[in-house]
């Protein structure tokens, strides 16, 4: 086994320090080492986006990055969005517009949408759809998800 590497990662404002095996994927680090199971493992093949988190403010697929690569980075996961129990506007949009059925893809969808709205104040429906290309949903047909992101954009 390769030698473990010490990493320091700030997740949702809290500093975490762990020794990890270099081959540990970031998503498994979040879920199994840090206990943050809101980030989902979907396809395991870098296609579905269920594992999307923000690394230094950028949406990435946490199944396609090693935990060691996050050393020194600031991460935001789905658990870090609500403030004192008040939903983030994107979470509220998903609630209000019924943008989920089974909910499996939802954390990744929300994180990608948060990134989109950080970059663009009022994206068009087409821009929302384009931004969500890396997130697959097998239930909703996407229309309500786009509604939810529009709702969130209008609320800010």
């Amino acid at each position: 086994m390769a030698s473990p590497v010490q990493i320091r990662v700030t997740i949702n404002g809290t500093l975490h320090t762990h020794e990890v095996e270099p081959r540990l994927l970031l998503v498994h680090y979040l879920r199994e080492v840090c206990g943050l199971t809101g980030t989902h493992v979907g396809c395991e093949t870098s296609l579905c986006g269920a594992c999307t988190v923000l690394v230094d403010g950028k949406a990435v697929k946490s199944c396609t990055m090693f935990a060691v690569q996050a050393d020194g980075c600031a991460l935001t996961t789905i658990e870090g969005l609500a403030v004192n129990g008040d939903l983030h506007p994107v979470q509220e949009g998903f609630w209000e517009r019924h943008a989920l059925q089974c909910g499996y893809c939802t954390p990744g969808m929300v994180m990608t949408a948060v990134q989109l709205l950080a970059d663009r104040k009022r994206p068009t429906r087409e821009e929302i759809a384009h931004a969500l290309r890396g997130n697959l949903c097998r239930c909703t047909g996407y229309t309500h998800i786009i509604d939810a992101v529009e709702h969130a954009a209008a609320r800010r």
Partner: peptide
């Protein structure tokens, strides 16, 4: 460490020059 982490890639030595 006691926890058996789920891993997919084979083990490797990691360097960040």
């Amino acid at each position: 460490m006691a926890v058996e982490y789920r891993v997919y890639p084979a083990a490797f030595e990691y360097f960040a020059p």
